[in-house]
Amino acid sequence: MVAFLLLNFSANAQNFLSKNLRIGLFSSTPLEDIRAVSDNGSAVLVAKSREIAVQLNVKTLEFDRKLMQEHFNENYIESDKYPYAKFKGVIDQPVDFSKDGDYAVTVTGVLSVHGVDKKRTIPGKVTISNGVVQISTEFKVACVDHDIKIPKLVFTKIAEFITIKAEGKLNPLK
């Protein structure tokens, strides 16, 4: 009984982390589709409290066209001033990280982009297999929510809502 408790405790006290989460953005208008992606997202999951934190150095987002990437950094996301996009929240549903399983979850927390914090509940998927936690999510961010201004001149080329996708494997921290 004591041994079981201890085992259970140690399994639940596990932390998971990743340094190479794939995080991408997608903007779609009738005139232009724009995508960018980075494999440098980092994520931390504290199993006991179901707390999850994800962070991306926005300068690592790569675009097809480098001039577009420069404009993204200089004119929109202002990566010199706000180098990181972050999300920190708690998984709303109970998840047993000690056993293999699939969970459709929501995570409630704060999304911080362009220096503006916004309380969000984001849908996602958590899959546990062989002690590795796979997470994935897709959600939309309104540019206006984060004080990102799109000039009228390029209004037809950049969407008001940007789709964000993130996925990756979190390994147990030993």
Binding site: V44, V46, E51, N57, E74, K88, L173
Partner: peptide, 24 residues
């Protein structure tokens, strides 16, 4: 302590963050 945990872990992860170029 728990609330602090995820944040401090993330900071520890990022201490060896990729060096990017200063563009434009």
């Amino acid at each position: 302590a728990q609330a602090q945990e995820a944040d401090s872990l993330l900071k520890a992860l990022d201490s060896g963050a990729v060096a990017t170029t200063v563009d434009a």
